[in-house]
Each structure stands twice: as structure tokens, then as C-alpha cells.
Design a protein around this nucleic acid. Structure first.
Lengths: 215, 215
DNA sequence: TGTACATCAGTGAACGCGCGTTCACTGATGTAC
DNA sequence: TGTACATCAGTGAACGCGCGTTCACTGATGTAC
């Protein structure tokens, strides 16, 4: 009879999944290596066969959280049909991204916080080998950002956004939505009623679309 | 000869100031009661004569950080002269608030993070006596928010912002600026060059103003 | 097909750390008479 | 104006906590011959 837990076979994934569940419940501070090992039913030491340390485990959770956010964005893009008019279609896509981002933040506050938490000592370096504080130093490697770039390119092609106003439009749009998310999760907007929250979301998404189109 | 540190006289303030310096250097996690006591040259126990615990100390730091932010906003408002045209003046004020907010965040990242960090267990209750997670449950008690309300009222009076678009306009404007601040401090915008940062700031402030005026 | 042996992937005990907090205490200060 | 005494505002030692991490180890697995 094989002793259980010996040669688990997929311990790295199991630990990352357990750690992601911890982040889901309690945010980045809850990503505790010993606790993840406990949940999997393995000694804390075993984790060191698969991760350099707690920082690398947290990094894995960040990537997983980011993947889930991207998945949510794709879902929201697919939820309504594409529109024939290019301008309307571009607006639909931008709104879907904004709404998906916010609904992910509200549905999974712990994961959202973890995906965007400040880098921690001991997190892995980027592929170039130079140490990096943020796992993805190039903005274009942040997938939600890339999706936003696409949507805004469509704005230009549809003639809603003038080419000379194109630069940094992603940052404006992203800032508004990201800021609303953090104010709702951690800030003074956390105590408004759901109805008020929806109004704030609508108003902000409208403001972003108008702010892009007007300039 | 009086034994020094006996009956300090202003220990509560001294501890809050020391704790604020800790927050300035290292953000909310750096607000460590024992360290603040060490800096003041007093035993950790002495702090308990003036604070219920670490949460109350952190709360004091938050208030102090928020005061400094408000001071920075007033400075920025006063930096340029008022304009005769009401519309131009309203726009000037809104931009000053946005710019002041962002420059405070960049100049004092630790204090900014602390002012807006999630509430901690052990933080004091609000004046009504009901326990509250956020020290200021009513949005209107957040002073920067109140300053924003004033500026946007001026937008309506100047005829730039239609009255029916007035509700939640603060949240849109605040979200954009707050989001940009957090993305620059903790997120992927932390690695852009200062010149790019300035462009991002200009673009975002332009987007906010345009988004308000257009609707 | 067996077998010796290297390597892999776990174990459990232990360490050091710094934190918030409690305890019994004591010297300094203020006040009633 | 003195003096007894309550109270105030400190002290230092200690506790418990849970963390990340290291150590020497051992049983399971895979491979060369």
C-alpha cells in the first residue's frame, strides 16, 4: 500500500491552487506558505522542492489571478453580440472591458487585490534575467492592458478617437476603472448601497467613453 | 534632576508623529507601535497610556496623512491665480485638485498608501458609536471629496456640466485620478520614465475634464 | 529479469524573528486638608 | 505652608503567536548494467 502524499505528482499546482484560494478569501496577506501546505496535507518543507520561497508562490497566485481576470473580460466581451456599426462596436467592447474588470473586482476582491498588489521581496525576476520589482515590466505584457489597446485602436479606426489623442488613452481609461475598483473595495466607496454602486459604475464608464470621444 | 522621559507631556502627539514618519518611509505596514515608541525613546508599554492599541495609532496616522493631502490640495489651488471666466476658473480648480492629488501621491507614496489603506481590525469606531470599517463612512466627511464637490458645483454653475449629469461626477473624477496614482505607485505604471509619467497625468486630467464637459 | 545505487520528493523538529500585548511595578505629580 | 495620599505616566520582563526558512533525515522511484 502506497503511503499517501509521497510523490504527490502535482504538488506545485496543488500548492498554487491552495494559495489562490487563500488569496481569494483574504487577499495577498493571506498567501501563507505554511497554510497552503497545510491545506494540501503536506509539510511546509515540501513546498521548497517546487518554489524558491513564499515570494515565488505569491507570484504564481498573481499570475493565476490575472488569468482569471482575463477570462472574465473575455466572457463579458462575448456576452453581447458584436454590432454592425464600427463606432457602436468599439464602444460596446470598451464598455464590456470596463464592466468585466469592475465586476471581477467586486466578485473576487481578494484575487483582484492580489493581482495588483505591490511586488514583494523574493518575487522572481523577469525573463531577461535582470531583477524586476513588477513581474511584467513591459506594459504590453499585461494582458488586460493589451485587450484595452485593441479596443482603443478600434476607436480610432471607427473615427471616434482622433489619432493625435490616441497616446495614453489606455492609461486614462484604465485609471478610471481601476480607481473605481479600489475605491469600492478598500476605500470610502465600500459603504454605498448596491444601487448607488451601479450608478457610480455607469457614470464612470460613461465618463470614460465621453472623455475619449470628446478630445 | 528630573529623570528624562518621565511625564513626557506630549507623548500621544510624539508617537503619532513618529508613526507618521514610519508610514512616510514604508507605508501602512511600517506603522509598528514598538518602533514608534523606540524612536520617541520610550518603552512600548507607554504607548498604551495614550492609545488603545496599534489600530488607534494607525488611525491617527491616517488622519494626519489625510490632512497633509488636503494641505497639498490647497497649495495647488493657490499656486495659480483665479480666472475671471467662470468656466475657465472651474476647469482650473478641478485640474489643480487632480494635479495636487497626483503630486502628493508621487511625493509621499508611503503617506498616500496609508491614507487610503484598507481599514484594520482595532481601528476606532465613528462618533455615532456604531462600529465602522472605514473611519469616515460618510463620503462628505472625506475632505478631498468635499473639495471635489465644490469644484464640480462650479462646473454646473459655469454651464459646462449639465445638471442631469451632475450625480456621481465626483466619483468619476476621483476614480480616474486615484486609479492613476495607484497604478503609478504600486502597479505597472511604476516603471515608466518621468516624461512618460507626465504625459499620462496630462492625458488623464484632460480626459476627466472632457468626460465631464461632454455628457 | 534482477539488482545496486543515485536521485527525487517527501518528513518532522527546530530556529530566529519581531510583533502586539499583558503584568506587576515605581517614581513623579497633583490635591485635600 | 506642610504633609498624606491618590492618581498619573512611565518601566522592564515576559508571553504567545505564526511566520519563513534550514537542517539532517528517509522512503519511493527510476535507471544502468
Amino acid at each position: 500500500m502506497r503511503r499517501p502524499n509521497y510523490h504527490h505528482g502535482d504538488l506545485a499546482n496543488a500548492l498554487t491552487t491552495a494559495a489562490t484560494d487563500l488569496a481569494r478569501e483574504g487577499g495577498p496577506e493571506a498567501v501563507v506558505l505554511r497554510e497552503a501546505a497545510r491545506q494540501v496535507g503536506v509539510s511546509a518543507t515540501a513546498a521548497y522542492r517546487h518554489f524558491a520561497g513564499q515570494g515565488e508562490l505569491l507570484h504564481g497566485v498573481k499570475l493565476q489571478a490575472m488569468d482569471l481576470l482575463v477570462e472574465r473580460l473575455h466572457q463579458e466581451l462575448a456576452r453581447t453580440p458584436a454590432l454592425p456599426d464600427p463606432a457602436a462596436e468599439a464602444a460596446r467592447r470598451l464598455r464590456a472591458l470596463g464592466y468585466g474588470y469592475l465586476s471581477f473586482a467586486l466578485a473576487e476582491p481578494g484575487l483582484f487585490r492580489t493581482a495588483f498588489c505591490p511586488p514583494v521581496r523574493g518575487e522572481p525576476t523577469d525573463q531577461s534575467g535582470t531583477p524586476s520589482d513588477w513581474p511584467v515590466p513591459d506594459l504590453n505584457e499585461v494582458t488586460p492592458y493589451a485587450m484595452l489597446v485593441e479596443a482603443l485602436d478600434a476607436f480610432v479606426q471607427a473615427g471616434i478617437l482622433r489619432p493625435q489623442s490616441r497616446p495614453w488613452a489606455e492609461v486614462f481609461a484604465w485609471s478610471a476603472v481601476h480607481g473605481l475598483a479600489t475605491l469600492m473595495l478598500d476605500g470610502p466607496l465600500g459603504h454605498v448601497t448596491p444601487a448607488e454602486r451601479d450608478q457610480a459604475i455607469e457614470r464612470t464608464l460613461d465618463g470614460v467613453a465621453a472623455g475619449l470621444a470628446a478630445i
